[in-house]
Structure formats: C-alpha cells, structure tokens
Design a binder for these strands. Sequence first.
DNA 1: AAAATTTTGATGCACGTGCCTCAAAATCGT
DNA 2: ACGATTTTGAGGCACGTGCATCAAAATTTT
Lengths: 351, 351
Amino acid sequence: MQKSLRPSTPNMARPTTKDLARVAGVSRATVDRVLNGREGVKSETVEKVTAAIRELGFVRNLSAANLAKSKSYRFIFVLPRSGDQFLDEILRHIHEAGEVFASDMIWAEVQPIDENDPHQIAAFLATLSPGDVDGVAIMAPETPQLRDAMTRLAERGVCALPFISNQALSGDNLVGIDNRAAGKTAATLMGRFIHAPRGQILVIAESMQSRDSLERRLGFDQVINDSFSHLTTLPSLETYGSADRAERVITAATQRNPDIVGVYVMSSEARIPLEVLEKADLPQQIVSIAHERTPFTENALRNGNIDALITQDPGHLVRSAIRRLRALSDNLTTSTSQEKIRIEVLIATNI
Amino acid sequence: MQKSLRPSTPNMARPTTKDLARVAGVSRATVDRVLNGREGVKSETVEKVTAAIRELGFVRNLSAANLAKSKSYRFIFVLPRSGDQFLDEILRHIHEAGEVFASDMIWAEVQPIDENDPHQIAAFLATLSPGDVDGVAIMAPETPQLRDAMTRLAERGVCALPFISNQALSGDNLVGIDNRAAGKTAATLMGRFIHAPRGQILVIAESMQSRDSLERRLGFDQVINDSFSHLTTLPSLETYGSADRAERVITAATQRNPDIVGVYVMSSEARIPLEVLEKADLPQQIVSIAHERTPFTENALRNGNIDALITQDPGHLVRSAIRRLRALSDNLTTSTSQEKIRIEVLIATNI
DNA sequence: AAAATTTTGATGCACGTGCCTCAAAATCGT
DNA sequence: ACGATTTTGAGGCACGTGCATCAAAATTTT
C-alpha cells in the first residue's frame, strides 16, 4: 500500500532524436527529415519513425530546437495613440510581457497610430516585410483600407491578428472578447440589480462608429428587451472623448428623462462620463455598469460609484496575442482553451 | 512622417555572454561567475560586469541555459481521489498542461490520496526526496500532520505549494482564490438578485470541516448581514457527498422554512444538492448561486437553474501551480500579476 | 621580498536539435 | 543490365550557456 504510493520512475532521461533513430532503425538524418516534414522520405520510413515517436513518447526539446534555429521573433502592437487609461494598462502589460518573453527570444514593440486615419495604418503595414517583423497585432477600427493592407501583409508572409477591436473579417482569431456577449452580460446584471418597477437606462459611448460599441449595444438591448421589459434603454450618447461634450449631452439627457435608474458606459474610458454623472446629482440611486478595469473604475467600484465592471484581463490579452502570433509564425496550433479571453465580471468583492 | 513609422532596428542580434565579456573587459569565465553568483570575484569586477549587462541590455537565453543544464523538472499534484466533477476538470487540465510543458522538460504527475487520512498523506510526502521530485502541489485539508510533513519536505529541499485548498500556514503562496472574498461575492450577487422584501437563504456544503467552506460561509454571512439585512441565512446543511443524506437534510430544511428565496451551494460539487432542490419544487422562484464550473453547473446556468457561478479557472490553476513550482525550485521570483487566481463570476451570457 | 592566497584567463566539452554536404545504397524505368 | 532517380546514411558545425580544469596574474599576508 505504501509502496503503491511511491513515485513511479525516478529520473528517466527523455528520449532524444538519437534514441528515435536507434529504435526506428534509421539514421538521425532521416529522423530529422521526418520531424521537420522534409521531402523525399518513403512513406513506410515515415511510419517507422512515427511509430518510434509513439513508442518512446518522444517530445521535441524546444530549448534545443530554438537554440539551434537561433530564431527570434519580433512582434509589433499597432495601437491608437489616444491615451485612455485602458490603453495605458495595455501598454504597461506589453512592456512587462516584453521582459518575460525576452528570454524566449521574443521582442514586442508598440507602434502608435492615429486610429482614425486608415491610410496611415495601411501605409505603415505596407512598410512591413518578413525579416523585419514576424507578426503584428492590430487594434483599429475595421475599414476597407485596413482589410486590404492586412490581406497583402498575409500574402507577404507576415501574420496579423486583430487585437481587442473586433474585426468581422477575421472572426474567430480575434484576440479579445465577444462584445455582443459582453453587452448581454452587462444587461443581465443591470436588469437584475435594478429593483425599481420601471425606469430608463442611459447608454453612453465614446463613439458609435466603432464596431465594438455597436455590438455591445446590440447585446445589451436584446437582453433588456427580452428579459427586462419594464426597463427601457435610451439612445446612445456619444462623448467623442471630450469632457465638454460629455457634460453637455449627459446633462441634457438627464434633464429630459427624470426616470433614469441605470447607466451603462460602453466605452473603455469610463472616467469622463461618470464624473459628469456624479456632478449631475440624479434624483434616485442608479445602478451603473461600465467596461474595463482602470485605476479610476477600480476605485469607483470600491467606493460603490460603479456597481459592476465588465472587463477583459489586459495582461492575458497581451500574452495571448504574443503566444498566438508565435504559433502563427511557426505554423503551430495554439492550445485554444488557454487562449480564450474571458468576459470577466467584477464587483467590489472580487477586484 | 512616413519615415517615423518605420520599425526601428531590423534584426539586431541579441548580446551573448561573449559580448558581455568583451564590453566588461573580462573573460567569459568571469562573466559566468558573476551571472551564476559564484564566489571569488572582486566586487569591482562584479560591478564592471553588471554595468555591461545594463549597457547591452543582456538577457540570459533561457533555451541555451536549460539545454546546458539539461535540467528537467518533476512535479506531483497530490489530490483527493474522490472524483467529483471539479476534480475531474483539474485532472484533465493537469494532463493537458503536461503535454504543453513537456517541451520545457517539465513532467507533471498526479498522486491520488485519501484526503481524510492525514497519516497517509504525511507518509507519502515522507517518501519524496529531491532527485526524485522537484516540487509538490498539495490539495488537502490542513492538519498538524500535513503541516509537519510539509515543513520536513521543505527542509529536505523539495518545494511544496498548497493548491486550491486553503492552508493558513502558507498564506500567501496558496495557488487558489481567497475563499472569504468568494463568499462575499456570492452574497453580493445573491442580495442584489433577490427582489423579495424578505426571506431566507439556504446554505449547503459538503462538509463544514473544511477550511474553504468555513471561509466562504464567513464572507457570505458578513455581506448578507451588513448589506442585505432583510435576508437571513440558515445554518449550513452538510451532505457529506451522499445523495441520500442530501435529500433528507434539504427536504427537512425546506419544509421547516417556507420563506426560502435563495440557495447558496458552497461545495465544488453542486450537482447533488441542486438535483434534490429541483425535485423539492419550492413554492416561489429562488435565486441559486453555486461554485465551480463543471458540465453540470454550466448546463444549469444555461437552463436558468443556476443564476450565477463563482469559479476559479481550472486550467489557470494548474498552469499557475506548475509555473510557481518551477520558479520555486529555481529560486526565481514569479511575475505575481500573472499568477493571481481570479474569482470569476459566470452568468448565462459569459460562460 | 618571498610565500600564501585570492582572483582571473584560457580553453574545452556538453546539452539536443537544425541544417548542411557528400556519398552510398536502394529503387525505378527502359 | 544499364543509367537515372529517389531515398538514406554518415558526419560535422552551429546555436548560447553551464561547468570543469589548470595555469597565470594580481593581491594579500608573513
């Protein structure tokens, strides 16, 4: 009984390509050809080698392989230069991850761009060629120019990944969350948190031009209409990132609608609208839900000024993008379960 | 303008120890002595080398280092053999992670133990010695015997980490969530989801012997009492993992208390109690909150039988434990931000 | 100043894989 | 049976670091 609890094999040396060659009855050169999928090996020989791989449980030693290839990766994050707090977090994590991944021969850089100038983005992407860069993660609104540029980039052999900002074209390899589901999540919490028998919900965005906001709004409205029909959602207010404009449109909306019981801030920059709302001093207690964890929103959550946050982990976003870019440029498949970005729900107790 | 957007340095080779030696004006042997903290180097020489490290931005090539050391890690997960669905998930992820980490020369194994027999656990840990094993992640209730065994293990140079199951002693290096905060999170959602003006909350656990359940209960009660005083919490019901007993105690409780408006299932195995409750056919709609994502709870969430789940990502738990064990056995510091296990909130829309 | 000690240099092998060349062997087509 | 072609073998260098040895140089102690 005690014996059965003893760890099985003490320190078995892991099989190497040499062992493979011996067991398969071929030379190391042939093993190499099979392992790296080179031409000119008879199919039965391939079989012998793969059989040996299975038999020995051979796993390629990545350290040795990387060393031999002396390959290094260079990835570029193309990000808007407008510095809201969420972007700052992303930047911080890129630099942090850069240090960690440095020992794996991975360099991550940031290229700020003007997200509203599709030509500039396209022009930048056009300058990239393999040899310079191994992969690009792009956070920018989807435009025909960008789509074209990304297609040409792929043709030239530089892999690209949409990052956070949703792009319909490249659907399932987006590194980011399903914004429609995020909107639904916000709506469900909103609906269940509001106890008033009826009322209106203020919806605030930076701009409804962006696909992200549109999808969040779509999901939000769907759930409110289907499951919380005693509540109504007001038309989206757009701040365009300006505090002045935010103040104007929000105060106008609050005066026009005395029955506001909830506020949903869709944009990743929640500070401006929420500060305006606080000054507005609404008649009743309202439930407010926002997106993304920033120093401001985190603090507001603790104070009770925000009731819930819908977030995506910036560190995970960055690391996932890097891992997936590396897998792409090595033509590997990623372990998908690890790479799914979760829609996180934060309340005061699980910050 | 276009020019400023061009990526800066094409493919700069990374500095090696040779470069360090050249720049510092010493030999590669001395660089090696400094890098690996060996004795017998004058402090000014150390300074010269560290200055060169800073100047060149040298980062040790981990692939090469690992290869040279030809070090491999062997980690053991000591887990209860009682097979609830959450444990099954953990097991699955250990095996999955095992394949991924295999290329990093890391082997992860599972040692099932009878979690209620502290002597058996202690006896097993006593068989482990460095050379056999590099690290152990232990999921078991805290007992004096276990504490002793872990201390002796550490003295022998095998590092150990409490895993999921909270152990007070080793406080901050637990791989898992803060169960008190998890209980608080459950309570906050419970309180806000319940619209009834008053009512009682059923609390079900597998056993209140375990520290985890105690802490969850503590956090839960604190928030209900402080913030939702119109609700009252009933004494914890213990199922001891038996369906029969669960049925008995739960039906007894529901008959005794007609005003139940919420159910909080604290144990990681929510299936049994929830199935019993469904049969019980309570008078009013109740809000139910449970822990851990399993095939059953996930399905119940989709069906609306569960309103929210408080979870910890099993894949993340496993990978984090492995990374931290490696860091421990290399005497490195882990990048803490990545290793914090989040208390996740799942509702039907963000599964 | 000589001896003892500490500090440094020079050099080489090892780790496991990728990649290369050249020749030998096997197989094919006629 | 011959040449042409495909397939395999043998061998070696490279990657960057860890680790070892032994001698040379610098520094301290006597």
